[in-house]
Design a binder for these strands. Structure first.
Length: 313
RNA sequence: AGGGGUAUGAUGUAAUGGUAACAUGCCGGUCUCCAAAACCGUUCUUGAGGGUUCAAGUCCUUCUACCCCUG
C-alpha cells in the first residue's frame, strides 16, 4: 500500500481571492498549481474567466489552465484523468501540488477518486430522447428511466431532463445502470491526503460588491472585444456556458442592451457564487477562511499557512 | 394652477364585487459523466384614512406619491 499524496486545495466562490492565495501558498510551500476550473481550461477566454496573468503567476508553474481550444468539449471524467497525471508529475519532482479553483464537481470528483468509466455519448439517441420528452412530456421519460434504473429515477426530479436522458443513455449503451457504475466507483478509496482551504465571506454583501466591481473591471480590460472574437468563431459545448460570454452573445444578437447584458453578468456571477457556496458547505473537509475577518491580506495568508499541516511534504 | 391617469411582494404583471395568482429576484437546497450547467423548495404583496356592501384589489370619498396633458 503506497502512501497518500499530500495535496493542498484552495477553493471558494468566485472573486473570493483564491488565485492569489493559491499562488502565494505555492511559493511558500514550494508548490505548483493545478487548476480546478471548468472554464479557465480554455484558451483565449482570459478576461471573462479571470484567469491569472503571466505576471500574477509569479513564476509558479500552472497546469490544466489555458490549454484547450474553446471548441473542444471537456468533461469531468477527462479532468480527473488529467489532474491525476499532473499531480503525479508534480510529486515526481518533489513539489507540493496545489489544486486551485472553484469548480466543486471537479474537486470532489478528484478527491473522492471517482472513476468514470469511459462511456461514449450518443448524440442521436440524446436527440431522440429529447424529442420524446417534448412530445410526451418530461414525466414520460422519467417513467422510462424507472424501468431501466429505478433507484436513479427515484433520485432525479422528473423535470431534470438532462440527467434523466444521461441515465437512459448509459443504460442503453453499456447495459449497466448508472447506479451500478456509481457504486462500483465508490469502492476505490482516495489517493490523497488533502488539506482543503475554503475562502469565504461572512458578509455576503461584501462578496457581491467585489463581484460587481470585478465585472466592471473586466469590461475596462476589454471583455467586449475578447467576447466578440470568440463568439465570431462560435462557441459551443462547455465553453458556451461561461458567464460573461453567453450574456454578451445576447447583446451582439441585439436581444439585450449593453447595460442589461452587464447587469445580467453581475447577477449570474452572484448566483454562481451562491451555488458554489452551497456546494462547498456540505463538504466537511473544508477548513474555512473568512476573508472579511482579517484586517489585511498578510494576516489571512498567515492563518492559512497555520491550517496546513501535512504528515510529510 | 387646471384637467386626466396610475398605485398589488424586492421587481414586472394577473385577478365578472366572492379563498389575492404568475414570473423574476432574494434566500435555502439537490447533484458521480456538458457543472460558470441542470434541477428543486421556502419566503414576501393590495399606498394611507374613511365610506357603501353579507363580502372591496375591484365601487364612492379624502389624502399622499408618481406619470401625462394644458398653462
Amino acid at each position: 500500500m503506497s502512501k497518500k499524496i499530500p495535496l493542498l486545495v484552495v477553493t471558494g466562490p468566485t472573486a473570493s481571492g483564491k488565485t492569489q492565495l493559491a499562488i502565494d501558498l505555492a511559493k511558500h510551500f514550494d508548490g505548483e498549481i493545478v487548476g480546478a476550473d471548468s472554464m479557465q481550461i480554455y484558451k483565449y477566454m482570459n478576461i471573462g474567466t479571470a484567469k491569472p496573468t503571466y505576471a500574477e503567476m509569479q513564476g509558479i508553474p500552472h497546469y490544466l489552465i489555458d490549454f484547450l481550444e474553446p471548441l473542444e468539449s471537456f468533461s469531468v471524467a477527462q479532468y480527473v484523468t488529467l489532474a491525476k497525471q499532473t499531480i503525479d508529475h508534480i510529486r515526481a519532482r518533489s513539489k507540493l501540488p496545489v489544486l486551485a479553483g472553484g469548480t466543486g464537481l471537479y474537486i470532489s470528483s478528484l478527491l473522492n477518486n471517482i472513476s468514470f468509466e469511459d462511456i461514449e455519448s450518443d448524440a442521436e439517441l440524446r436527440e431522440e430522447l429529447k424529442q420524446m420528452a417534448e412530445e410526451k412530456g418530461a414525466e414520460y421519460l422519467h417513467e422510462q428511466l424507472k424501468t431501466c434504473d429505478p433507484s436513479l429515477a427515484e433520485k432525479l426530479h422528473p423535470n431534470n431532463l438532462g440527467r434523466i436522458i444521461r441515465g437512459i443513455e448509459v443504460f442503453k449503451i453499456t447495459g449497466k445502470t448508472m447506479t451500478e457504475l456509481q457504486e462500483k466507483s465508490r469502492e476505490t478509496p482516495s489517493n490523497y491526503d488533502a488539506c482543503v482551504l475554503g475562502l469565504c465571506y461572512r458578509d455576503r454583501e461584501k462578496l457581491y460588491s467585489r463581484i460587481n466591481l470585478r465585472v466592471d473591471k473586466m469590461f475596462e480590460q476589454g471583455l467586449l472585444e475578447e467576447a466578440k472574437k470568440l463568439l465570431d468563431d462560435g462557441l459551443i459545448g462547455t465553453a458556451s456556458q461561461a458567464i460573461g460570454y453567453k450574456e454578451l452573445a445576447r447583446y451582439f444578437a441585439g436581444e439585450e442592451s449593453l447595460i442589461e447584458a452587464k447587469e445580467s453578468i453581475k447577477q449570474e456571477t452572484r448566483r454562481y457564487a451562491k451555488r458554489q457556496m452551497t456546494w462547498l458547505r456540505r463538504d466537511t473537509r473544508v477548513k474555512w477562511l473568512y476573508v472579511d475577518e482579517y484586517s489585511d491580506y498578510s494576516k489571512l495568508h498567515e492563518s492559512s499557512v497555520k491550517l496546513i499541516n501535512f504528515t510529510e511534504i
